[in-house]
Nucleic acid binder design. Structure first.
Lengths: 195, 195, 195, 195
DNA sequence: GATGAATGAGTATTCATTCAT
DNA sequence: AATGAATGAATACTCATTCAT
């Protein structure tokens, strides 16, 4: 029993575990409460409702996630390096916390529209980091100037997300960290052979 | 409402409409039946259970979708052209059927693991088309030879999927068809400015 | 396919089979129709509703049953002999038709009050045969004169019924015919040791 | 209606009433809950499912029933007296609780095979009491030594059961307690006139 | 007479949330 | 703050019966 942690974090950690193990639809509030070592009713002293647990979970975990990525990227010089470290950190953080990866890549996507809108607003900050790198790359004339910024962001995020999802669904049978370089090169260089 | 369409298609079309309008979790069988103009029980003469409606819906609609894309791509000469027409057709087909786009990009992802596995097996054929184009591009030495084929496929699909999802969530306030060229160029040329 | 038999009997025989094999609650009209080799709707040309199949089944089968027993008993001289042949014939007929025994002893008792009232009215004739034997026994001063006739009938029927039910539930692992003599003696002589 | 009784008993008593009044098949869980003065969901805090209410009902009520009969019979000296008090107590207990009699004699027999097996295992204890009396009677050379013990038990139980069922179906228009003596004599003495 | 596609009423059970203690 | 017993809304599926052909 994690009695030392404040109950708020205790419940969120329990939720990640329970959802990763049982799947989104089999993760009843009572199951999360039991795992957290509190009574069902106690949940409602810390969260407005069940959806609020999930949103908070995402905020809490993604908050740290994004902070880390922000820190790493600002520490790099060039936009390309920044993009690389973003991809690497993204893969690294999730590969270290498989439960969280399952929850964010698979289980939380089963939520309804409302919840997903809230999740997207949390994601916004992450997308801002990507936008910043792209913007910088164009400004510094490292990236092509005539690209559609929003599309680029969607390509970068879509690619990373799809790669992680495939890794999670394959139940981590390979090392995703090793793919950071390839993914980075693919995004930077594109598909075409240069003469 | 008596329709001339066979009941099977009638029910699937009703399901697409109802799910697009009400969301996955508010789409009761009785609501679908009502929209299709049949009795609740009639649903079960054509489908094993509720999940079977969704799987069939996806098979039916994605079947046509993939066939169309297969047809268009084989009609083109170069891998690059094939990739372009794949992206264009993908955007075109979904932009013409917003209900279907909502269902495939948002609502059907709320389904449970079992359903998603079945959906993935339908999707497999689409991924095969992409794989074929990539393979051809490498063989013909148009695409770089040292790329990771699976990663490329994930980049292509991840990018297209993310672009469509963003378009759907923005409630079609812009013309996605116009983005086909940019997306294609991004994938082919990459981010980097060529000297 | 029993095409030669008239459909009425065909359906009743199918019902006995289906109920014996699947149990009362898993014996849908459609299952009976299929076994009888007719369409579902055809059932309703010969029977008012599902309950009517069951009542008719019981009437038809018990009709023959009672006739046989009436015939056998009248052919005997003394009330005691008549009682014996009644028991023996009862056991004999059911041991020869296990399906019917299962249906009458176990499955049909799961029916609701209404159906059971109708079944009881069919049974009335059988009880009349017993009553006749008891009456004759008393009149001829073979049976004790101060007995309660109705109670005697209930004892006789209750005993026979319980013995048969036990036999059916043991899935015919012993020969019930061999018990006719003992049952008869028990009823006639009672439990008490005579000095 | 707030009752002082613990909810478990409250629900069981409500079930007896509702089933006796409406019949087995018209006794929905919600009807039982309403009668018990609890919410539908509360039922499932005390019982696994609907069938479990019925099994528990039978165990609870028959448990007391059998205990009472065991107590009464052991307090008597001779096997014949024991048999008499068993019959009398059986009639007495059911005649005092007509609802329970309706449920055990008529409604609970409509249950499916599974439920009936569980009911039979409860009944086993009652049959053991009868077996004990028969055994003792033979050992003490009061009952005939050459009787088939199992058949005797079937006769005794079958007779009592049939008598009670007839009484219940006649809707208690006569006093069943007055029949205890006659039933006892019939079983002990048999049908035959002694010279 | 015969068919069988279509009907639609009916119900056990789960689980997020509340609130008296 | 914490509890956990109690609540009650919400829904997929079956199957006896009908009736147009």
């Amino acid at each position: 029993m994690k009695q030392s942690k404040p109950k708020y974090k205790q419940i969120i950690d329990a939720a990640v575990e329970v959802i990763a193990e049982n799947g989104y639809h089999s993760s009843q509030v009572s199951k999360i409460a039991k795992r957290a070592g509190v009574a069902d009713g106690t949940i409602y002293l810390y969260f407005k409702n069940k959806e609020d647990i999930l949103v908070s979970l995402f905020q809490e975990k993604m908050g740290q996630f994004i902070e880390k990525i922000q820190g790493e990227t600002t520490a790099r010089q060039t936009p390309s390096e920044k993009l690389y470290i973003l991809i690497e950190t993204h893969f690294d953080l999730l590969s270290k916390d498989y439960h969280l990866a399952v929850v964010t890549q698979l289980e939380l996507r089963q939520s309804n529209k409302d919840l997903r809108l809230k999740i997207n607003s949390v994601l916004k900050k992450y997308l801002d980091v990507i936008d910043g790198i792209v913007e910088e790359g164009i400004r510094e004339e490292v990236f092509r100037e005539n690209i559609n910024r929003k599309l680029v962001r969607q390509m970068i995020f879509g690619t990373i997300d799809e790669v992680v999802t495939n890794w999670v669904m394959k139940e981590q049978h390979y090392d995703i960290n090793k793919q950071a370089e390839d993914v980075h090169e693919l995004i930077i260089e594109g598909l075409l052979k240069k003469k």
